[in-house]
Amino acid sequence: MEILVCVKRVPDSSENEIEVNPSGTDIERDDLVYSVNEWDNYAVEEAIQIRDKVGGSVTVVSIGDEDAEEVIRREMAMGADNGIHLSDESFEGSDGRGFATILKAVVDQGNYDLILTGAQADDGAGQVGGMLAALLDYPYASLVNLIDVLDGKRIKVGREIAGGHQEMNEIDLPCVLSIQTGINEPRYVGIRGIRKVASIDIPIKGAGDLGVGTETIGAAAAKVKRQDYFVPELGEGAEMLEGSTDEIVEKLIELLKAKGGFK
């Protein structure tokens, strides 16, 4: 099976103290460390496991400036066979639809049976996967937490529903899936793994290579524009219980009883 996984380089929320810049247009990016978006990492692991089971290849694609190469390489160290780095000044400022347009061009150039994205990105809106499927006119399943390869034409995918319920669907290939965390346990990639793939060439493709019209992408084509960026003010409503552990527990039980949460 030929699998394409779309990954994104994001500031890691657990390793950064995110602050909004003074002009309120973006976050402070000076002292940030980046990594591959967590959901995407699960998607790559899933792709590798499927390939190891049924054969084929895994290609990782990412849109971004020269730094994006770092995450592509990391995913190749995990076991992905190929990497494609999409980089072009005209890509800057694209909205979800713009990115989906760029990715569609990559899919069109290949022969992929399965396209995986993360369910969402740390700094995203969770829209590219669905838009990509729509542009391709492929079937789409979101929030997938289980994949079962049936034959070369169909796969079975699972989705967790609120309340711990599980839904199973059959879906025709080729298709696009957005992957939920927890679908697997992604393998660890150390410095040694990255060094092993350090010399592999990762082709860089721009709008021209992809045959994407620059009028369909970039800031000019974006139909969604960010208006503001801020940290909401802390509201009222939180009550800090004080006292010894026993007293706190007692007060909490009283409160829960009073509000009907406890019978």
Partner: peptide, 24 residues
């Protein structure tokens, strides 16, 4: 070397790589 590391340890290891401490 096989990438077989518990998820609970992967985060601090990544943080050590990036920030030089396990807490990130």
């Amino acid at each position: 070397d096989e990438g077989n590391v518990p998820q609970s340890l992967q985060k601090p290891l990544r943080a050590l790589e990036k920030r030089g401490n396990p807490y990130g």
